[in-house]
Design a binder for these strands. Structure first.
Lengths: 221, 221, 221, 221
DNA sequence: GATGAATGAGTATTCATTCAT
DNA sequence: GATGAATGAATACTCATTCAT
């Protein structure tokens, strides 16, 4: 965690440093990310950096925290499933929201992705948080689905959540490859390409596979 | 590709170098992997390394090749689905074989994984191969399933393959976390922990979700 | 150009680094001159060097600049030819001044000499300056000589300047060889050996050849 | 000097090695010239090289010897001044022959040039030979001129030879710069550009300056 | 609290030379 | 006499971190 001095900084200065740090760590892996470059671009002294953060890893962990927090915030902004909203319907929204976040905050997604990958030495507890990822969230969703009667209670809820999670986590990458969308284009159009009919159809197909696979009764095509 | 001199080396020396290189590149990303450390541990001269490989990238690409080749070999050792063998039955075997490989060769899996992540200079064609990953393989499996009548032809075959792929790719990590198995233990017991009843049950559960989701007619529990 | 940090250095430290750098680059060609050796002898950290200079070439260009600047300063210290001072008389002074510089700053002369030879990466503009060398200066001198009526206007002024230049450039080396003067001795006595009668007589002889060759009317011996 | 084994080689092989060595040493300075490259291009083993030459310097010294010998041969092919041929007339021929050699054997000239410059560690005696250069030859020419009565015996013969030498040595470079001739063009046309009227006029001008400067009686324009 | 010069271990790569075969 | 793998010292350059001001 950054030292108190960092949080004492004027808002705009703190924001600038954070912004440049995100840019730096998104653009290259942990080792190649350069503190020198950050402080130079931020116009602060090398020594000042070490008054805000204990070291490079300290900054890095903070960036991961911020990325996770922002993603959470983005997802929670999607209206949660009401007692009468079908979990699969909610999943449609969630996936779109998740993808939109991933592709409109590509640098933060990149940083989280790298962290997953084991890009830098991480403290055990941080590693655990990252590795668990969104699994607990989907676990909770599955339980709601069971309560709503749209998910067969016979399934192991955790395995079901894993299946949700796996699809959710990999769909973005798949869509990009399948539809031959360049990441730059998403940046430019704010992720709209992911809401084109072709993209929606693919998402829909994947969800219906889950729906039929997990559902209480078989769903006719 | 390594130079001929590398392949001319006595088997044990060549194996030692390969072993240490795998260890090195599995332990850190491309930039941080150190040729100096490899040669020092291997007890060979710096110059000798450059008589075996043109440069760092040459070694790296070779490691990826070896990892892919070994994984292929491991998977192909699993009997291919005969004309009358159910694709889902085959998938059970495949997943187990894949997991066994992944966890008995964790460093090679790690290297391939990092390659996916793109933190190193890769020639275009290598990058393409890696990015597509196992998707084409699963696509073919889906088509077999359709031919066998166990997968509903109404599904988009590519999306179905994606779902297979996503489950297949993430299941190993999930199992480890779920069963709280330390990677070291797998190394020690040759992957047997993954064949314990608890592990098999989870794999089975995931496959049955797919089976029901993708199957031609709903499958009763 | 060195970074500001270099010029901020205490005078003696800056001088020491410059001195050792001159020694290094005079003693070998660009490729063989070693930054490592310089920093080791200067007792500074490798990294410090790169805080003073952007890279090896940066230092090298600076050394050339310094050499040229110092030579210019030395030559300008010789009183310029007044309107009524004979160009040949001026040349006598100039040659002596030039030689004195060349032999009391042999390492700087060496560096400039090597630069001429082109064994190092030079920016286009620096290369042009060096390649033209002192030719333009002598061209101007010839024109003064014509104006003074001591050089025959029938000669091609540029060829005449070339002849001046060739003699001027090579005389030093010739004197050393002819008089069997060891370069070290010049260093020790501050170039005085070049002002011994024998040396002056040779210089004089060469100038009189030019004088008669270029002069408006033949000069009696 | 190369070992006897080198001279025992079949003519074409020996010639090939020599050719490639000249190319290599002409193309870069001593340190950058690479034995590895030479042996690779020559298709001989690294070890074989060291059976022909004791080391890199041995080859280098041999190349200098060859260059000097060939230049001498080229110059001597120019008819020597007969008892009744004016030394200055001879000089015209000589300069042209020298320039032609220099520009039709640019790689050898380059090597000799670098040697002059102090590109590599040279044994004392070789250095002396190179430094003296063509001076003794011009000294002899001056003496002939005096005998012929076209050079004033009052001049110091050695200084006169120095003046000849300086002009002779620097004229080529001057011509190239003055006439803006690219070295490549000379290579292409076999040095003919140096015999164009403009080039001849400049050479002539320089010789006439010497002629008047050194001549027994003043020469009218 | 801010500064920024100093540090030095670290990196990949090169190449003349040796020597066992 | 030919071979070519092995050697290791050498190179320029980087960068997180410290600390005196």
């Amino acid at each position: 965690m950054p030292k108190q001095t960092f949080f004492n900084l004027p808002d705009d200065k703190r924001a600038l440093i954070l912004e440049l740090a995100i840019e730096e760590f998104a653009g290259q892996n942990y080792n190649n990310a350069s503190i020198s470059r950050i402080v130079e671009r931020a116009g602060i002294a090398k020594g000042s950096f070490y008054q805000y953060f204990t070291d490079k890893q300290d900054l890095y962990l903070y960036l991961i925290d911020v990325a996770i927090a922002e993603k959470k915030r983005a997802l929670l902004a999607t209206p949660p499933p009401g007692p009468d909203m079908d979990v699969f319907a909610y999943l449609r929204w969630l996936i779109t929201a998740g993808l939109r976040f991933e592709f409109t905050n590509p640098r933060q997604a990149q940083i989280a992705y790298r962290a997953l990958f084991g890009d830098a030495p991480l403290p055990e507890e941080t590693r655990a948080v990252i590795e668990q990822g969104t699994q607990p969230y989907f676990r909770q969703l599955v339980e709601q689905g069971v309560a709503q009667g749209v998910i067969d209670p016979a399934w192991d809820a955790d395995v079901a959540a894993f299946v949700f999670n796996a699809i959710f986590t990999n769909l973005g990458e798949y869509l990009l490859r399948r539809l031959a969308i360049a990441p730059e284009r998403l940046l430019a159009d704010g992720g709209q390409a992911l809401e084109a009919p072709a993209a929606r159809a693919i998402t829909e197909e994947a969800i219906r596979i889950l729906e039929r696979g997990l559902g209480r009764t078989a769903v006719a095509d």
